[in-house]
């Protein structure tokens, strides 16, 4: 899987030579480098759009229940959008794993299958892990926690602790094996996404303390710990998004090597090509770990990053 990503991203090729000073965007504009870098500070176009969508969708869940609107019923683990079922894929995957060993699989309704495939196609078209930044209520909380965390790191109150991102797959397989071994959807009892979603719709419960515990851990110890290293839902979506057309495009000739985009990014390894002397092609695309949150687009002074439908350029 990883090898496949490398070939696709162009990481295996020999890097291009870094641009000379004369070709840098700030010299072309006749600006001071520092001033140029900060010229997009305070731009939050995509962040504001994304937060609006995220809050609106989660509010729609709540309002549908409170006012009996029948627009978006259920919760993030399974829902019905104007009558059409939608299933959480990791939940469904555990369910399928257990029920195929016990034979219960034959009882699953047609709505289950339709819901599973609808949501897979839907988020595949929208970039897979876009679910995280555009839909997940915990992502929103974690973004707030991240700001606090960044402040604490900046003022040297705490140290940053990073881990290997590959342990997501240990958790992903681990939770499926755990489900098979115990015949319970164990992950659902620990799933901060589902807990927050359910708490918003059906009322808060004791498990919110678990959510706050994770959040606190992220704030004082390791930045975005759950999203980066644990969440198997995000991992599932990143697998779904492997071949998704919607990604973020990088134009080397507009880049000023400032790396601001990597600092704001949840998954900085997906932006490996922004570093001076790393890019191997004139244009690069982010891989499937990218949540298409648009923070890098907002922060980029040279507009080197943009949303794109890869492979559809000639059609549209």
């Amino acid at each position: 899987m990883a090898a496949f990503d490398i070939i696709r991203s162009g990481k295996h090729k020999t890097p291009l030579k870094p641009k000379p000073m004369a070709d840098m965007p700030h010299t072309e504009l006749g600006m001071d480098y520092k001033v140029w870098c900060d010229s997009h500070k305070g731009t939050h176009k995509w962040r504001n759009i994304r937060w609006s969508v995220l809050i609106f969708m989660n509010l729609l869940f709540v309002l549908s229940f409170v006012f009996d609107l029948a627009i978006l019923e259920g919760s993030l683990s399974g829902s019905r959008l104007i009558g059409f079922y939608l299933m959480d894929p990791f939940n469904a995957l555990q369910e399928l794993a257990i029920s195929s060993t016990t034979g219960y699989i034959v009882h699953l309704t047609m709505n289950f299958w339709i819901g599973l495939f609808t949501i897979l196609i839907f988020w595949f078209l929208l970039g897979g892990r876009s679910y995280c930044s555009w839909m997940c209520p915990y992502h929103f909380l974690a973004e707030m926690g991240e700001r606090l965390h960044n402040y604490l790191v900046k003022t040297k109150k705490i140290k940053e602790h990073a881990f290997h991102t590959g342990i997501r797959f240990v958790f992903w397989f681990g939770f499926i094996i755990l489900a098979l071994a115990t015949q319970q959807l164990v992950f659902e009892n620990l799933n901060v996404v589902g807990i927050v979603s359910r708490a918003m719709i059906y009322g808060p419960g004791l498990l919110l303390f678990w959510v706050f515990g994770i959040l606190l851990f992220e704030i004082v110890y390791s930045k975005r710990f759950w999203c980066r290293y644990v969440c198997p839902i995000g991992t599932t979506w990143s697998l779904v998004g492997k071949l998704s057309p919607l990604t973020i495009k990088f134009d080397l000739d507009k880049c000023g090597y400032c790396r601001d985009c990597q600092t704001v990014c949840l998954v900085p390894h997906e932006l490996w090509f922004v570093q001076r002397g790393k890019a191997t092609q004139e244009t690069h695309y982010t891989g499937s770990d990218c949540t298409n949150c648009g923070l890098c687009i907002d922060t980029c002074a040279g507009n080197a990053l943009s949303y794109t439908l890869k492979g559809w350029g000639t059609v549209l």
Binding site: G74, S75, G78, A92, S99, L185, N189, R198, Y202, G205
Partner: peptide
Amino acid sequence: YGCIKCGLCVQICPVQAIKLAGAHEGLSYG
């Protein structure tokens, strides 16, 4: 293991008889 804890049954019940279990029910949460 079959119940995915989505709460659609909770939402459709006209008399709101169905509720989702809290964390104090242990593994039955949700």
